[in-house]
Design a protein around this nucleic acid. Structure first.
Lengths: 240, 240
DNA sequence: CGGCGGATTGATATAGGTCAAAGAGGGTGG
DNA sequence: CCACCCTCTTTGACCTATATCAATCCGCCG
């Protein structure tokens, strides 16, 4: 019965949706949610599928329901840098701008719930709390971006890789116990992506990972599955 | 007479204030502006004066009226990275958090207009447009941070220095003609600061500057005053 | 079994860091 | 007014972390 009370008037599409609680949809009234749900559509995307191109006009915004999105920028000669990773239930898209400054690409299998730009903008105008949530997420992303700037500018390759593993562990280890000592997960990124994220080359990534493995700090199976035996010990290698 | 019409009801403190137009105060009604002005205070700060310490609680927010603020982070062993520069009429402070994640320090002579935290938060609650402006500024800062991540992760020392000079030129050259070919300004940062900003050492900064000078792309007088003869030619060196 | 896209490993090169020594102003006190 | 000093900057010589180039290797799919 409790379920009925709580989901009264909640669109079917949204009933079991994570974004309704921790995501931006949490700021909407049942009515608004219903309106938005009418023009929204859930869909999936395969790894490496490009969601929004650099300098491409933005016609849809999305919530990430599961998976990881990578945001990247490319210099004219092809050098690439990943400038953000987004996880469920983040909001994907750059409000108030006709075109994106980054390329958004599925890093893993992805489930998205997308809305037409106009619908989101209308909601934003009539529901200030939506803007508030967006501001909160944007501030969080800015804080993260600044942490990464320290990492990019001042950390050694070894520290970068350790920091990266910790960041992933915190964001996608399914065993979401906040004060655990251990973690295990599938890397959402290839070695090439990790390199583009850390500002290194794929060879350096590989060498640092083997070093950590040799020292018994991590285990790697099937190239992608990582187990961290002691998060604190790894954190000591992260530099900050 | 026009002046009278436009400044009707505008607090004396704010009449000639840039932040009332381009800054966040532009979102306030004359009434709200008056209320805020009552608890706000204009003041100055000398270069290298620390405004907000890392992990320090935030009691005041400010508008930057003139000068440059540097935001930095420091690793436990002292390595430092500048993660943001703010110029007039930016809003200074991290909303919705009891403590700052960065150290804010005056890079140059500074004029600030500060408000108690409570006053700003009250305004924010009653005037959604204020949050909107804040969101806009935060998104702008995020865009910048991402550009810098590309710079930190993927550009060479030469490209970093060129990018830095262009960034400063765009932000503080007083001759604010947008489609000019040339620029001149005083560097708001010492070589050490530039190094901390670009993730390099002060020696490398110095060498790259002398190289640019030797090639006739820039002139430097009194260590701080820089003249860029041809912005486009310098932009070719910036990499993107 | 062969081919193919990662990933690892090794040998070598180099951009930028480190260490050390001079300049270059610019303020201060005699 | 000059001599000294202090801080910032430049320049030079050398070193090292990471890039680059080049083989394998490994798992997987046809």
């Amino acid at each position: 019965m409790r379920k009925d009370i709580h989901s009264a008037g909640i669109p079917v599409l949204c009933v079991s949706c994570e974004a309704r609680h921790r995501g931006i949809c949490g700021s909407l009234t049942p009515d608004q949610l219903a309106t938005l749900a009418r023009s929204s559509v859930k869909h999936k995307a395969e790894p490496s599928r490009e969601l929004v191109g650099d300098a491409e006009s933005i016609e849809r915004y999305s919530n990430i329901l599961s998976g990881v999105v990578k945001l990247s920028k490319t210099l004219s000669d092809g050098r690439q840098q990943i400038v953000g990773l987004q996880f469920a239930p983040d909001f994907l898209g750059r409000p108030f701008r006709r075109e994106s400054a980054v390329t958004a690409e599925a890093a893993t299998e992805l489930e998205l719930c997308s809305f037409p730009r106009a619908a989101v903008e209308r909601m934003m105008a009539e529901q200030p709390d939506l803007e508030h949530r967006l501001l909160e997420q944007t501030l969080k992303e800015l804080d993260q971006a600044r942490d990464w700037m320290v990492m990019l500018g001042r950390k050694t390759a070894a520290e970068k890789v350790a920091s990266f593993l910790l960041m992933i562990a915190r964001n996608i280890d399914p065993t979401a116990d906040p004060d655990r000592r251990t973690a295990a997960f599938d890397l959402p990124l290839s070695r090439a992506d990790i390199a583009d994220f850390l500002g290194l080359t794929i060879e350096t990534i590989s060498r640092q990972l083997t070093r950590l493995r040799a020292e018994g700090l991590i285990r790697i199976e099937h190239n992608r599955h990582v187990t961290i035996g002691d998060l604190d010990r790894l954190a000591d290698r992260a530099g900050d």
